[in-house]
Amino acid sequence: MPVLGLRAIAKPQNGVGAFILQCKRLDFHYCDWAGSSRGMNAFIKSSLPAFAKRNPAIEISVSPRPNQHPVIIGHYINGRQKAICVRNLTNEGVRAKAELLRDASGEKNRRVTKPVSSLNESVRGIWSPLHGARIKI
């Protein structure tokens, strides 16, 4: 048996072949009575059908939550949730928050210091002091 195969799993690269939207569900909670839900109620009545039509990959559920502030909860493929309270926001403000949840990846927010991360090794290679011409003093 000169060579054996090691078992591994191919790593995912979302967006290289197919792109899977990471937000899979958005829950909209509103209150019929409280004033802080005024913008949310206007959003649900006027803009939500268009929003749902533009984003067919997201399952949308609307449910009342009496005597509470309105909230949007996003459920993500990695199993995490993100909730944003949208009290006293206008229709436009609620839409902006919904789009923010839609575009999020579900990961925790973290500061990105290196803009590029790659699974492929560097094309140019790593500099080696042991190769190339010797320096003659």
């Binding site: 048996m1 000169p2 060579v3 591994a8 191919a10």
Partner: peptide
């Protein structure tokens, strides 16, 4: 569909070798 979802995954074939001699 197969190309987009399966072959697009990253696999470095050179890491799968286990030489004995």
């Amino acid at each position: 569909f197969f190309r987009d979802h399966f072959l697009s995954r990253h696999l470095d074939l050179s890491t799968l070798f286990d030489f004995r001699t």
